[in-house]
Amino acid sequence: MTEPSSTPHATAPGASASSQTAASQSAADETPASQADFRASARRTFAIEEAAIAALESHLDDDFDRACQLMLATKGRVIVTGMGKSGHVASKIAATLASTGTPAFFVHPGEASHGDLGMITPADVVLALSNSGETAEVTALLPLLKRMGTPLVSMTGKPGSTLARDAEAHLDTSVAQEACPLNLAPTASTTAALVMGDALAVALLEARGFTAEEFALSHPGGSLGRRLLLRVQDVMHHGDALPRVALGSPLRDALLEITRQGMGFTCVIDDDDHLVGVYTDGDLRRTLDQHGDLRALKVDDVMTRGGKTVRASMLAAEAVRIMEENRISVLVVCDEDEHPIGAIHMHGLLASGVI
Score class of each variant (00 low, 15 high):
P4T: 04
P4W: 06
S6A: 14
A15E: 13
S16G: 03
S19T: 11
T21C: 13
T21Y: 15
Q25C: 09
Q25D: 10
S26V: 10
D29P: 12
A33K: 12
A33E: 08
R39S: 08
A40L: 07
A40R: 12
A42S: 06
I53H: 08
A54P: 07
L56Q: 09
E57T: 13
L60Y: 09
D62N: 15
R66L: 02
R66T: 11
A67L: 07
C68F: 03
L70N: 01
K75G: 14
G76R: 13
I79P: 09
G82F: 04
G82E: 05
G84A: 04
K85M: 08
S86G: 04
S86H: 10
V89D: 03
A94D: 05
A95P: 10
T102V: 07
F105V: 13
E111M: 05
H114T: 04
I120T: 05
I120H: 03
A123M: 13
A128T: 10
L129R: 03
L129I: 05
S132N: 01
G133D: 02
T135G: 05
M148W: 05
L163P: 07
R165M: 02
R165G: 03
R165E: 05
A167S: 03
H170W: 11
Q177D: 00
Q177W: 01
N183M: 05
P186H: 03
T187L: 08
T187A: 00
A199D: 04
A201T: 10
R208V: 08
E214C: 02
E214Y: 07
H219Y: 02
R227G: 09
L228V: 02
L228M: 07
L229Q: 11
L229S: 09
L229C: 05
V232H: 05
V235C: 02
H238Q: 11
A241R: 15
V245Q: 07
G248R: 13
P250G: 15
L251D: 12
L256G: 11
T259D: 12
M263K: 13
G264S: 10
I269L: 03
V276L: 08
G277W: 13
D281K: 10
L284M: 04
R285A: 15
G292C: 11
L294N: 08
A296Y: 10
A296D: 15
L297S: 06
V299M: 01
D300L: 09
D301T: 15
M303I: 05
R305A: 10
K308H: 14
A312I: 06
S313I: 08
S329Y: 10
V330A: 14
V330C: 14
L331R: 08
D335W: 10
P340V: 02
G342I: 02
A343Q: 07
H345I: 05
H347G: 06
A351T: 02
G353F: 04
G353Q: 06
